[in-house]
Amino acid sequence: MNTATESYPIGTPGTPWGDEERAEWLSRQSSKRSYESEVLSVIERLRSRFDVEQYGRLDYGTERYPLMAIRSRDWRDDLPVVLITGGVHGYETSGVHGALQFVDQHAEDYAGRINLLVAPCVSPWAYERIHRWNANAVDPNRSFHQNSPAEESAALMRLVETIGDRVVLHMDLHETTDTDETEFRPALAARDGKPFEPGDIPDGFYLVDDSESPQPGFQQAVIEAVEQVAHIAPADANGEIFGSPVVARGVIQYPLKELGLCASITNAPYKTTTEVYPDSSRATSEQCNVAQAVAVCAAIDYALEVEVECHYK
Rank of each mutant, 00 (worst) to 15 (best):
M68A: 02
T93Q: 14
S48N: 14
G112L: 13
G98C: 06
L40H: 02
E21D: 09
V42P: 00
S37Q: 13
A99R: 03
D77P: 04
D74R: 15
R113Y: 02
L40W: 00
W75L: 12
S30A: 12
Q101G: 06
A23K: 12
S31H: 06
Y110L: 07
R47F: 02
G95R: 04
E92W: 07
H97C: 03
Q54M: 04
T62N: 15
R71Y: 14
R64H: 15
V42M: 00
Q101Y: 13
T93M: 14
T85W: 05
D74G: 11
S34K: 05
R33N: 04
G87I: 13
S34Y: 03
E92C: 11
T93D: 13
P80F: 00
D77Y: 06
V52A: 10
E24V: 10
R64I: 06
Y60T: 08
R28V: 00
L58H: 09
I84H: 04
Q105L: 12
R22E: 07
V39K: 04
E92L: 10
L58V: 11
Q29M: 08
G112W: 11
L26N: 00
V81F: 10
E63R: 13
S37M: 12
V81C: 12
R45W: 03
E108W: 02
R47T: 14
Q101T: 14
V88Q: 11
D51E: 15
S27E: 11
G87K: 02
P80Y: 00
P80E: 01
L83P: 04
G90F: 01
Y110G: 06
H106R: 13
W75R: 13
S31G: 01
V81S: 09
I84E: 05
E21N: 05
H106K: 12
Y65S: 07
E108H: 13
A111D: 15
S94P: 04
E24C: 05
G87H: 01
